[in-house]
Nucleic acid binder design. Structure first.
Lengths: 217, 217
DNA sequence: GTCTATAGATTGATAGAC
DNA sequence: GTCTATCAATCTATAGAC
């Protein structure tokens, strides 16, 4: 007595995973452009190609959806943080980190904008993350840079302003992508332009620290 | 037959100017935090300490109010652009421009955020400004920098990525002020910290271009 | 799991007493 | 010039047929 149900394996779970991914991607794009309050569930639904009610079937509320978008971004940020490897010295460590962050600005533009929006609004959601995870990560890298300076491996600068400079410069290519593309004749940056921008950013910062630019990867 | 009216000179005009200023300042702060769609007239009214209806008495619509806020910011941006004086050579020209932009990030945080929000949303309002005024200004400074490079006054880099780097780094101190202050123990940067950050930014960029840092003013 | 219909709250904007 | 009351539109969220 075999029924016609269960023809595919775990159908409900697959549909759920696929739709959640669809909605999360749409939400990321809409939250990126309009911020939390400016975004509407209707915009997100339209972008996902689903009726508005389906969003509330998969996510409890607008804030719950936003929270998951922000969490996803934070894990991507954590992954990029690993590129800041301190064991190979300042030139290699900094240039790998800068290159990785430039890559993320190209591949995860929306995520960067959502983070920027969240911080500009006073971090109502990620305040504890700033105070714990980001603070610890920042302090540990500041110590590493101070070690390099003490060892005479780079010019003495306050590591904090150096880190902010790297964050600002790399994330600018995501957050201000529209301005950059407008000044580029309304076209996205080409592969060659991304590579040159990355090389220029690495070159100026490393040069400013008295280092020779390492391989941009 | 002297009436009790007209005791002060031009009372209506003074009241109008004062209230418009009050509303514009409140609107700039609210638009900075929430973007155009996320901001509400009620929030702006509360911040200005006025009933909501008064906003519509002085400004025709939410969009009209937003437009005036953005225009005010653009004039401030224009003023900063003048600090990029090319006649004194790269070290003086660039360091004065960087110092002026850092100063603006400190004194006009909200304006910078409104601009960032507007660009992140795809510049629905200032698109023509990007294509005309900003493009012309950028092209003229790129030419100036290319002149310095041709004269052997600085290391050869693509001037475009250099300009983006300066914009990104300086505006970061306004747009991400909340993150910076959180990492500073929930306190605003002191005078000394602002000065040191400005010196560090100038030092790294000028050093990366093979220049000696000029006076940070 | 999907989708139409709609409830309940909030929005931009205006009318009209003061 | 100020401010309460209110309208029409839009928002988040849910109910309930399919």
């Amino acid at each position: 007595m075999r029924s016609e149900l269960n023809i595919t394996e775990a159908p409900k779970t697959e549909i759920r995973a696929e739709n959640e991914r669809l909605i999360l991607n749409a939400a990321e794009a809409v939250f990126a452009e309009h911020g939390f309050r400016g975004a509407t569930m209707q915009m997100i639904a339209d972008r996902a190609g689903l009726p508005k009610a389906n969003l509330h079937y998969y996510f409890t509320s607008k804030e719950g959806l936003y929270r998951q978008v922000v969490e996803r971004i934070f894990f991507i940020w954590l992954e990029a943080a690993d590129a800041f490897e301190t064991s190979a010295g300042p030139a290699a460590g900094l240039s790998r980190y800068i290159a990785r962050k430039m890559e993320l600005s190209r591949t995860h533009r929306h995520g960067s904008k959502v983070w920027a929006n969240e911080v500009m609004q006073g971090a109502p959601l990620v305040q504890d993350t700033l105070e714990t995870a980001l603070r610890e990560w920042t302090d540990s890298r500041i110590s590493a840079i101070e070690g390099w300076i003490a060892a005479g491996q780079m010019r003495p600068v306050n590591p904090r302003w150096l880190l902010y400079m790297i964050w600002a410069t790399t994330q600018h290519y995501a957050d201000f992508a529209h301005q950059i593309e407008t000044l580029n004749g309304a076209r996205p940056l080409s592969d060659a332009q991304w590579a040159e921008a990355t090389r220029t950013v690495c070159g100026i910062i490393l040069g400013g620290l008295g280092l020779h630019a390492g391989p941009a990867a």
